[in-house]
Design a protein around this nucleic acid. Sequence first.
DNA 1: GTAATAGTGTCTTTAAGACACTATGTA
DNA 2: TACATAGTGTCTTAAAGACACTATTAC
Lengths: 249, 249
Amino acid sequence: MNTTPLTELEFLTSYDPKIYSRPSVAVDLVLLTVHERKLKALLVKRGEHPDAGKWSLPGGFVGIDEPLDAAARRILAAKAHLNGQVFLEQLFTFGDPKRDPRARVISVAHLALVNHSRLLRALDASPDTTTLADVEVSWPGESAGPALTSLDGKPISLAFDHKHILGAAVKRIRGKLNYAPIGYQLLPREFTLRALQDVHETILNRPVNKDAFRRRILASDELRATGRLEEEVGHRPAELYRFSSSAAV
Amino acid sequence: MNTTPLTELEFLTSYDPKIYSRPSVAVDLVLLTVHERKLKALLVKRGEHPDAGKWSLPGGFVGIDEPLDAAARRILAAKAHLNGQVFLEQLFTFGDPKRDPRARVISVAHLALVNHSRLLRALDASPDTTTLADVEVSWPGESAGPALTSLDGKPISLAFDHKHILGAAVKRIRGKLNYAPIGYQLLPREFTLRALQDVHETILNRPVNKDAFRRRILASDELRATGRLEEEVGHRPAELYRFSSSAAV
DNA sequence: GTAATAGTGTCTTTAAGACACTATGTA
DNA sequence: TACATAGTGTCTTAAAGACACTATTAC
């Protein structure tokens, strides 16, 4: 058996005759945050056709030697000016040949979560081609579908298949809430249990039982009480907690 | 604003200067089945370097106009001779730049499930470069890691990063068992509750409570009793069930 | 009849939900 | 003081686990 390494070109042409019509690979980013009991996603305004003027998820092509998550973090830094620790995970790969009318572009969608005030500070340094749109999903529980987005109460439509990517992101974060401690990613380092419950209710789009929520969260040993209280709230202040393995933010 | 459509070449060269060094995109397939209380995966023997002679997951490049799931089904037909209805879902996209030493190949891994006897019939028509290897995973519950594979009790190592792809597949199917009716995908059209429980125990690699399992499965309304009994079993025969929405197999 | 597994009934345990009650800050 | 929300204690409910018991077929 011939074990002499082929050159990359030999390999590709022998294995993949369509080497010169390979798909492009991009990363699109669903950056979610929660503010005032609303789920919000970062969008950027498209400057070029197709869909020029429409809002879209931030994205970009993957470098030839760049890991997928590195591309996602590069886009996170470029479009949202977020550099430090940010929750990020791969979501799903969208590969419909017609999803981009110009060419075959396969998009490896990623989900990122960041707390609202940190995001606002970062976006202050951004051009005004970005916005935080409200995200609404009508479907409950385990079902799924596209997400609806609006700005100042007015519905907006997204470029390409981005409403489906956003829908997949909402489904993912709803599912993860049940078994993974991710709510704190959307809050400042110290927060009250009520604030965490608000985040859960916003994401799930339904009320959650206060007693059971407190019992479950505290029993899970994921939070650490600080002993300090919130201030200036006009009523009895709640105790502040931190996430236990404080690699957070 | 110029709204004249660019040609694809103009678009790609302006947007993606590295057009001529784009990654290749492949699909790798984790085809799982269960037989005699063992989880098994379809492997193919590599004929070419690197890793010539090693076992690997079946895979192939994605056509320029081919949807990702279509590529997965094409590979399913080519490597396992499976053509009809087969459970298939996208798993995860593996994009480490060094995962293939020859070139940048991004792999969109897919998970497929099929019942053992149907698979054996299909594989009868296959060359002997395929095998069904035993899959073992040591990590329990929600944790994860690479999978171990063995043939006739002897450990085998897989090509590329395929042990990690296989590990992700086992994690996925374990998670899905908790909320989705997928066990029946691994059984013939009619099966006993005990057989379904065996499948669950094999995948989860732990015993499951018989009473609770029966109650939960029957309450979920996913199964339909046939009224008929299994035969020739040497003891009291169990009733045969079918999956309710019998799009199955 | 015995062996072996199928299938049922019921008690215990665990976690969620309901709800009333007390606690403690601001105004 | 009133008010609003924080936080606790306990009862109810739902589902899982434990376990004993009956049922039915092969032999």
